[in-house]
Amino acid sequence: MGPDPLALPGTLDALDPLADFVHAAAAAAGLDKKAAGRLHLAVDEVATNTVTHAYGERGLTGQLYLSAEIAPDVLRIHLEDTGPAYDPTATPPPADLDKPLEERGVGGLGIFLARRNVDAFLYERRGDRNRVTFVVRRPGRPG
């Protein structure tokens, strides 16, 4: 059994309980510490993006809704928000990753890391919610 679904205020204060939630789900699914850390980073990056851009910069308040689904072969974490429709899976990777840091922009790295750190990174618009799903294969279970 993974952790119960959780609703958190859509602020940066959500990041600590979000970390606890993801680590609890990862432990319940049998992920090792490294895989759990990678998944945590992925969920954190998308949540931070939502809190900062979808809510904060627009003066909107909202919540973050987390749920975990442990299937025989994979763990799925769903992260939902009520911000404007936004599909992070459609965000192109940063084009300047091999440039010197002095010439770099600072945007886009979070979503790049999120995609990189999970086995599948999915998006759907459901009613008034954005729903991002992070899928990670469970160890020892061919998928």
């Binding site: 970390a19 945590h40 980073l41 990056e45 931070t48 840091l101 002095e102 600072v106 790295l109």
Partner: peptide, 19 residues
């Protein structure tokens, strides 16, 4: 024990300042 891309932004700033 943990650093997200928000930390990378700080490192970028440090790097730029020191360079």
């Amino acid at each position: 024990d943990y650093m997200s891309s928000a930390g990378l932004r700080v490192l970028l700033l440090v790097h730029r300042q020191l360079v």
